[in-house]
Amino acid sequence: MLTIRNLVVRRGSFELRVNHLAVPRGEYLVVLGRSGAGKTTLLYTIAGFVKPVSGSIEIDGVDVTHLPPEARDIAIVPQSYALFPHMSVLSNICYGLRVRGVSKSVAEARAREIARRLGIDRVLDKKPRQLSGGEQQRVALARALAVEPKILLLDEPFTNLDPEARHEARKLVRDLHRELGFTAIHATHMFTDAVTMSTRVAYVDRGRIAYVGTAREFASTPYARRYVEEIREVARILFEA
């Protein structure tokens, strides 16, 4: 379980404040907000890349506020996927396990297993630049899931995909979440992600968490007006389905 209390983060003139946010184990929280609202800052602070001015972050009752990223047991899938370009897909997926002291044979067996589950077992010997956008996204996901993190952070993971690949990716991540039960915090500007993926939605507006609740309830709040067109599109897709 992740608990954030009285968190204040400053980056230049921008300030992020989170008075209280609790994410129970196994939840899929979608952090929704427009560009520059503070979604990535929130994720980076949870991951330990950004130091807060004050407040605390606890994971399973342990205060990790001042712990370095490598000691938090959190994995991140950034928007760019950040695949290590000099390594093969297999080495990318194995990386987290290897740095945690897992033997090469065990790490590779685990990587192959997760690659098979994500449908990328045929590209294990390739370099990231040889992959399509969808494949890169799945490799980044496999690399993060391979270490079985306490919390998985996803920063706009579907933004760089075309609509069809995005639809596939949403389904894949949703199925993986149901199957593996990991805790996920997913930052996005797309309401569709919130509707199709989330257990709950946290809406971030100008550095403040303005709403926390279900996506269905969010649709009836004033903040949802910004997503009217997208909501109509979702409704159309659901209707067609």
Binding site: P69, E70, A75, I76, F84, Y95, G96, V99, R143
Partner: peptide, 9 residues
């Protein structure tokens, strides 16, 4: 950043 989040010092 990603490498550190995966556990690398």
């Amino acid at each position: 950043m990603v490498a550190r989040s995966l556990g690398a010092s």
